[in-house]
Write a protein that binds this DNA or RNA. Structure first.
Length: 766
RNA sequence: UGAGGCGUCGUCUAACGGCAGGACCGCGGACUUUGGAUCCGCUCAUGAAGGUUCGAAUCCUUCCGCCUCAGCCA
C-alpha cells in the first residue's frame, strides 16, 4: 500500500490515545474479517483501507481472516476472489492469513471451560421455544428449563453434540448470562449450533459450529488483535463481545471493538442479497459487470485502487449514518485517470464530413501528441484526409447561444489538425442531416494563434477502425434504490449501451488489454482485460468526462427539498426521564420530601430540584454539600451543570470528591476566593486526583487575582503569544476578541475577574 | 415500546469552552487546439427550546428526528 491515510478521525484518536497510554504496549493490530460467502464491494473497500491504513500508519499489522463459521453459506470460490480483491487494493497481510475454522478446536475447549464454570449450558429445547422465551424489547425473557442443568450433564451433552449423536437443531450451547437483560443479545445467547454440513476447509471434522458472537472475539484474542473495527450495526453486540473475552481471559493484548458507519452510496445498492440477486437474475453480466459496485466490477470498469483510496480519504470515517454522493466517487476516479490516460481520438456517433478543399485521395499523417501540449511525452500519426467523421452531437443546424461547436457557416478546429468551416448541409430522404460539406484552412495546422469557436474530436472515415465500445452509466436511476419498494423497478435502463458505429483512430488498435485512455472530449476508456484480443481491444467506458455544457440548465440533478421536520407526534405515550424521576418520587416518600424541601425551603428552580431529588445518592451528596457550608442554589447549579458533565456518567459515590468536599468547593467560589472560571479548573482537578479544595487552591495558585498589575501582565503575555490574532482584531476582526479573552484567561488560569480582563484587554487594544 | 447509537452547508467531514474550516456538487470568472484539466472567486450549515458561563456546535435539561438490536446469519 502506498501512503498511509493522512486524515484524522475518531479511530485515529482512539489509537493515538491508546499508544500514548501504553495500552497493549503500544501495539496496533487490526483485521479484515470477511465471511467467504460473496464478493467484496466498495463498502468493504472502505473497511479494508481503514483497517490496513490504520495499522500501517501506527506501525502495526493487519490480518486477513476469513470468518468461516457457517459452512452452509461459504465457499472457496469466494475465498479466492476476496484474497485477490484485498491484494488488488494494496492490502498486505504478510504471514497473517487466517481462518476462523483453524481455531475450532481452541474455541471448543473454551466452550468446555465455560460449561465447567457454570457459564454455559446445553439447551435441548426447540428453536421456537427458545425464541419464545427470549421475550421482546419491553418484555424480559424467561429462563430455559435446561438453564440449571448440572455442569457435568451439559458437558456430556456438549461432547455428544460434537460427536455427532444429535441431528441438526436438537440442542444448542447457550451462555448463561441474564434472561432479563435489557440488551436482548445478552439473554443467554447461543454459542454453538449443530450443523451436519461439509465445511469448505474442515470437511466433515465438525458438526457443531460456533456462532459469530462467540467466535469473533475469540478469533481476535487468539490473534492478538488490539483494535477490532466493525460497522455500527454491531454496537449492541459489543456487550457480548466483552462478556466472552472477560469470561475466557486473561488476554494480552485484550482486543477492543469499535464501530464506524459503513458506506452507503447513491445510485447503487450494497447488500449482498441484492447484489447476488442482480447476478442470479442476470440483470448484469456477472459479479464483475462494470456497473456493479463490487471491487471486481469496479476493476473491470477501469477504476484503479488509487482512485478508491482517494475516494475513501475524501469521505472520511465517522459514526453518522450517511449516504455518500456518487459524485465524490466519480470525482476521485476522474482525478486519478486524468494523470494516467493518454488522449486518443475516437468518434462514438459519427457524422460524415466532406472536406471539399482537400485533394481527393490524399491522406496526410498528422503528428499528434498523446498529451496535448506535451509532445515530449510521445506522439503518434493520425491519418487526415478528405473524408472525415465528427460526433453527430457536435453539429447543430440551429445552434443555441454559446454554441462552441460546428454549425452552418461556422468554424471549429479538429483536435490536432486544421480549422474547418461548414459550408453546406447534405440531407437524406427524410430531410435528415446525413453529411456536411466543409472547407479547411491550410495555414491553420500548427498555428495556435488561429482561433476557432471550439475544438472537436474526429477520425478519418476509412483510415479508422470500428471496435466494440461499451458505455456504462449508473446502475440505478434513483439515488436511493433501497428506498424503492422493489429495487429492480428502478434499474437504469440506459446503464449499458453499445456504440455500434464508433470509429477509433488506428493507433488504438494496438492498445494493450488493461490500458487506460481518454477518448478526447468523451471520457476515460479501459481496454477490457478479459475480452480484448491482440490488435482488437474491447472498450469499456470507465467514466465520461465532466460535461458542464450538458449539465447546464436542463438536466440539473433536481435537488430534493430538505425534508420538512415532522410535526411533533400527537401525544407520545413514552415516559421521559423527567417522568421517570417523578415516578421514583411518587414511590419513595423520602425523595418526595426532599424534592419539596429543595423546591420550597431552598428555593431551587424546579429543574434543579427535580434533578437533585432524582435518586437518594444524588440527594445525599447534595445535602452533604449543604452541610459543609455551600449555599443551596449555587451548589445546585454546580452540581447539575458542571459536576454532572465532568463525572461523565460515573456515579457520584465513586468520585474522589465527597459531598462535603464539593460543598467546601462551592463555598470557595461563592465567597469570592475563587472565580467561576478558576473554579472549573479546580473542580476538574479535584475529580481527577481528589484532595482538599482549600489546599488545592493554594497549590495551583487559583486564588482570585485582585491585583490589576497581574491582570495587565497576563493580558500582555496573551497579546504576545496571540500577536497575529491581535493584529487582525485591530484591523477590524472584532470577533477575535473572544479568542484574546480566552488566551488571557488561560494565562492567569481563569483566576481573574473576566470583566476586568475584558476591560484591560479593551484598553490595551485601543 | 426496552436498550444502544447518531443529528454541522444540497452531500461527506473538521472544530474536544474562544475565528463554524475543508472537500464534492452548484454558480461566476481566468486560462485553454478537450465545454476536460488547472487557477481564482461566490453561494450555502450547528434539529428545537431553555439553562450554566465573560464566552456554547461543544457542558446541563427537555423536546424532535433518524439508525441498529427480539436468526440455531455474519
Amino acid at each position: 500500500m502506498a501512503d498511509a491515510p493522512r486524515s484524522q478521525n475518531f479511530l485515529t484518536e482512539i489509537v493515538e490515545r491508546d499508544i500514548a497510554a501504553g495500552v497493549n504496549g503500544g501495539l496496533v493490530v487490526t483485521r479484515f474479517p470477511p465471511e467467504p460467502n460473496g464478493y467484496l464491494h466498495i463498502g468493504h473497500a472502505k473497511s479494508i483501507l481503514l483497517n490496513f491504513g490504520l495499522a500501517r500508519r501506527y506501525g502495526g499489522r493487519t490480518h486477513l481472516r476469513f470468518d468461516d463459521t457457517n459452512p452452509t453459506a461459504e465457499d472457496v470460490e469466494y475465498v479466492e476472489s476476496i484474497e485477490a480483491d484485498v491484494r488488488w487494493l494494496g492490502g498486505d497481510w504478510g504471514e497473517h492469513l487466517h481462518f476462523a475454522s483453524d481455531y475450532f478446536e481452541r474455541m471448543y475447549q473454551c466452550a468446555e471451560r465455560l460449561i465447567r464454570e457454570g457459564k454455559a449450558f446445553v439447551d435441548s429445547q426447540s428453536q421456537e421455544a427458545i425464541r419464545e422465551q427470549r421475550g421482546s424489547f419491553e418484555r424480559p425473557g424467561v429462563n430455559s428449563p435446561c438453564r440449571d442443568r448440572p455442569a457435568a450433564e451439559s458437558l456430556d451433552l456438549f461432547r455428544r453434540m460434537r460427536a455427532g449423536e444429535f441431528p441438526d437443531g436438537a440442542c444448542v450451547l447457550r451462555a448463561r448470562i441474564d434472561m432479563g437483560h435489557e440488551n436482548v443479545l445478552l439473554r443467554d445467547p447461543l454459542l454453538y449450533r449443530i450443523r451436519h454440513a461439509r465445511h469448505h476447509r474442515t470437511g466433515d471434522a465438525w458438526c457443531i459450529y460456533p456462532m459469530y458472537d462467540y467466535a469473533h472475539p475469540l478469533e481476535d484474542a487468539f490473534e492478538g488483535v488490539t483494535h477490532s473495527i466493525c460497522t455500527l450495526e454491531f454496537e449492541s453486540n459489543r456487550a457480548l463481545y466483552d462478556w466472552v473475552l472477560d469470561n475466557l481471559g486473561p488476554w494480552d493484548p485484550r482486543p477492543r471493538q469499535y464501530e464506524f458507519a459503513r458506506l452507503a452510496l447513491g445510485y447503487t445498492v450494497m447488500s449482498k442479497r441484492k447484489l447476488l440477486q442482480l447476478v442470479a437474475e442476470k440483470r448484469v453480466s456477472g459479479w464483475d459487470d462494470p456497473r456493479m459496485p463490487t471491487l471486481a466490477g469496479l476493476r473491470r470498469r477501469g477504476v484503479t485502487p488509487e482512485a478508491l483510496r482517494e475516494f475513501t480519504e475524501i469521505i472520511g470515517v465517522a459514526k453518522n449514518n450517511s449516504v455518500v454522493d456518487i459524485g465524490k466517487l466519480e470525482y476521485a476516479i476522474r482525478g486519478d485517470l486524468e494523470g494516467r490516460s493518454p488522449r486518443a481520438l475516437a468518434v462514438l456517433n459519427p457524422l460524415p464530413v466532406l472536406l471539399e478543399t482537400w485533394p481527393a485521395g490524399e491522406v496526410r499523417e498528422l503528428e499528434v501528441p498523446w498529451w496535448p501540449g506535451e509532445p515530449g511525452r510521445g506522439v503518434r500519426k493520425v491519418p487526415f484526409g478528405r473524408e472525415l467523421l465528427i460526433e453527430r452531437e457536435d453539429f447543430s443546424e440551429d445552434p443555441p447561444k454559446d454554441w462552441k461547436r460546428l454549425a452552418p457557416g461556422r468554424e471549429v478546429r479538429l483536435a490536432g489538425g486544421y480549422v474547418i468551416r461548414c459550408d453546406e448541409v447534405v440531407r437524406g430522404e427524410g430531410g435528415a442531416v446525413v453529411a456536411l460539406r466543409c472547407s479547411h484552412d491550410p495555414a491553420s495546422l500548427a498555428d495556435p494563434s488561429r482561433r476557432a469557436a471550439g475544438t472537436l474530436n474526429w477520425v478519418h472515415a476509412t483510415r479508422s477502425a470500428s471496435a466494440p465500445v461499451r458505455l456504462y452509466d449508473r446502475l440505478f436511476s434513483v439515488e436511493q434504490p433501497d428506498a424503492a419498494g422493489d429495487f429492480l423497478t428502478v434499474l437504469n435502463p440506459d446503464s449499458f449501451k453499445l456504440a455500434p458505429a464508433a470509429r477509433l483512430e488506428p493507433a488504438l488498435a494496438q492498445a494493450e488489454p488493461g490500458s487506460r485512455w481518454q477518448f478526447l472530449r468523451q471520457g476515460y476508456f479501459y481496454a477490457d482485460p478479459v475480452e480484448s484480443r491482440p490488435g482488437a481491444p474491447v472498450w469499456n467506458r470507465t467514466i465520461p468526462l465532466k460535461d458542464t455544457w450538458a449539465s447546464r440548465g436542463a438536466a440539473h440533478p433536481e435537488r430534493e427539498p430538505r425534508r420538512p421536520r415532522k410535526e411533533p407526534a400527537a401525544a407520545a405515550p413514552r415516559r421521559s426521564r423527567a417522568e421517570l424521576r417523578a415516578e421514583a418520587r411518587a414511590s419513595d416518600p423520602a425523595l418526595a420530601a426532599r424534592f419539596s424541601r429543595f423546591r420550597e425551603a431552598l428555593e431551587l428552580a424546579e429543574e434543579e430540584a427535580d434533578l437533585l431529588a432524582a435518586e437518594p445518592a444524588t440527594a445525599a451528596f447534595f445535602e452533604e454539600a449543604l452541610a459543609a457550608g455551600a449555599p443551596p442554589r449555587p451548589a445546585a447549579r454546580w452540581l447539575a451543570n458542571e459536576l454532572a458533565g465532568l463525572a461523565g456518567g460515573r456515579p457520584l459515590g465513586s468520585l474522589p470528591l465527597s459531598g462535603a468536599g464539593f460543598g467546601r468547593f462551592v463555598a470557595l467560589v461563592e465567597t469570592g476566593r475563587v472565580t467561576p472560571a478558576a473554579g472549573k479548573l479546580l473542580l476538574s482537578t479535584l475529580l481527577e486526583r481528589g484532595g482538599e479544595p482549600e489546599g488545592l487552591v493554594s497549590e495551583l495558585g487559583l486564588e482570585k487575582v485582585t491585583d490589576r498589575g497581574a491582570v495587565e501582565a497576563a493580558v500582555a503575555r496573551a497579546l504576545e503569544t496571540r500577536r497575529a490574532e491581535a493584529d487582525r482584531y485591530r484591523a477590524g476582526e472584532k470577533k477575535l476578541f473572544g479568542v484574546l479573552v480566552g488566551a488571557a484567561m488561560k494565562e492567569i488560569q481563569g483566576a481573574a475577574d473576566a470583566a476586568l480582563v475584558r476591560q484591560v484587554l479593551q484598553e490595551r487594544l485601543g
